[in-house]
Structure formats: structure tokens, C-alpha cells
Design a protein around this nucleic acid. Structure first.
Lengths: 142, 142
DNA sequence: TCTTTAATGAGAATTATTCTCTTTTAAATA
DNA sequence: TATTTAAAAGAGAATAATTCTCATTAAAGA
């Protein structure tokens, strides 16, 4: 996920958020780190270039970014929160043994699901977003 | 979800688990409580008939039941764990405003998804289970 | 009934997350 | 550019869900 510094600033400005080094650092971490890092991993990464950042600030920044839909929260069966900087619609592959999460993008699948639910609907419920959570095992033991 | 006391005992025995009053009480709570209760709700319910149960015991029992696949963990974007006693394949409807979760069962949908993934597969990943997480709003404000 | 092994109870410990309050800073305005 | 001000960050205490420890109890097989 390559996102330049200017793009990060643009994204913050688009949401009318103050552009602070801390916010940039958190987004930068999310765009750089492999995938779906925990707060701990995010802090670890940021501290390399910004050793004095306060942990509470990272939590607060993450909250603000989620509220403004610049990132998403992701939860697995383990009990810490993880974050996802990918904005396009995607699903998740998850292996509970390794707690590894990978993104899964499949437009054909999305089309099929949209068509299905437009036709069928769900009584008493207004659908906003459909995400698949696909559990299983990764074949390469990365 | 009507599950009798005998059925509960059978389910524990099938998994070669010792049948203890605490385990029965936790399963009983899960089968009785509306849907997807938190540990707090489970404890609250059990304490009515079993005021001295230890909180740590409830957590441990829940772990054992999850390990043995008698129940499932469910996570939302809020940060406490919730549990689900339903064993049949089902999806979740979720409203983030109210943090309410409802089950969604649709065999046609499951058939369609199974067919799709049997045909297509996912490179490097062995699928074990597919769950939809459908976000939106409940129309009745229950 | 006896024995063994596993489960429970009680409460301390841990730890992710939130909160409070003071200081600092981004950015709008003069 | 300097000033102003509302919002953000820093520091660390507080909270609360969950886990851990270890002594006690109980389930279930012999």
C-alpha cells in the first residue's frame, strides 16, 4: 500500500482534520506495516522515528481516524484490536492458528453478492456493507 | 434456542468433558439469553441461580467450550468479547450504533457461496468456513 | 468407596485502553 | 508576520476486561 506523504496530508485535510506530525506518523505506519497491525506494532514502528510519542495519543489518533473513516478497526478471535488502512472494499482471510489476516479482493464476488441481496433483501434490516470473514489456513507458512 | 438439560449434558459428554454444574450453567445461560451475550451478561444470568460462581471459572469454562467448538466467540468493533451458542452455520447482522447482533441463516446464500468458491478457490489458502458480517441498521428500534 | 486427575474458588496480577489535566501547537485571523 | 484560540498532544494515573496462581473441591473411573 504505497501512499505518499502528500497523499496523507490530503486525506487529513479532506476530512477537515488538523494535520499533525502524530496523525501523519500513524497513517504512515498503517500504510507501511504489512497488514492489520495491532496498536503495539504501530507504536513500535512510530517510535523508531518519533521516540517520544505518547501512547494515549496513538490511541486517540486511531479513534479519530476510524471516526473519519480513514482507517478501519478489525477484530479477530484474539482480544486486541487491530487496524486496517485499506479503503477499498475488501474481505478478510483469517487463520486462527497464526492470527494472521490477509486482504481478499474479488469484484466478481462482490457483484454476485450485491445482486443476490438486491433481489432478496433482508427483512427488517437495511444493508450498508457486506464483508466476508473467511477462516482457514494459509498454505505457505509465512 | 431451546436446548434441554439432558442435551447439554450430552453435548459435554460427547466432547469427553467433565460434566460440572458450572459448565452446565454457562451453556444454559448461552442457550437462554437473547443473543450474543457478553461475559458480564452471562455472569449476571448465572448468579441468579448460582450466586457464588467465580468469575475466573466462567472465563475458563468459556475457553474450554470454544476450544471444543460447543460455542463461538464473536467480536464486534467494540472491545469486549461476546459469545454465541448457535452451532448451525449462520451469518451475522450487525448495527454499530446499537452494538446489536442478530443471526442470519440463509441456505441458498450458503449454497451459492460454496459453489462459487469450489469453482474459484483462493490461491494459497484452504477455506474452512465462510461467514458474512453484514453491517447496517435494524429497521425496528428494538 | 477410594483414588486420581481435572475443575473450581478467591483474589492478586496483568495489560489494553481510557481518562484527566496541563502544555503545546496548528491554523485561522488581524 | 504576529497574535489568538480551539484543538491536539503529553504524561501518567485510573479503569476494567481478562488471565494467572495456588489451595481446595469434586467428577468419574477403578
Amino acid at each position: 500500500m504505497k501512499v505518499s506523504g502528500n497523499q496523507i496530508i490530503e486525506r487529513l485535510k479532506d476530512k477537515r482534520l488538523k494535520v499533525t506530525p502524530q496523525r501523519i506518523a500513524v497513517l504512515e505506519a498503517l500504510y507501511t506495516l504489512d497488514s492489520h497491525p495491532s496498536v503495539e506494532k504501530i507504536i513500535e514502528y512510530i517510535k523508531k522515528t518519533y521516540p517520544n510519542i505518547a501512547i494515549g495519543t496513538v490511541y486517540k489518533v486511531l479513534d479519530v481516524l476510524v471516526e473519519n473513516q480513514l482507517i478501519h478497526r478489525v477484530k479477530t478471535e484474539k482480544d486486541i484490536m487491530r487496524y486496517d488502512g485499506k479503503l477499498e472494499n475488501h474481505h478478510h482471510l483469517y487463520c486462527s492458528e497464526s492470527d494472521r489476516i490477509e486482504d481478499f479482493i474479488d469484484e466478481d464476488l462482490d457483484d454476485m453478492l450485491n445482486e443476490y441481496f438486491i433481489k432478496k433483501g433482508i427483512a427488517g434490516f437495511e444493508i450498508e456493507e457486506i464483508k466476508l470473514h473467511i477462516k482457514g489456513k494459509f498454505k505457505d507458512m509465512q
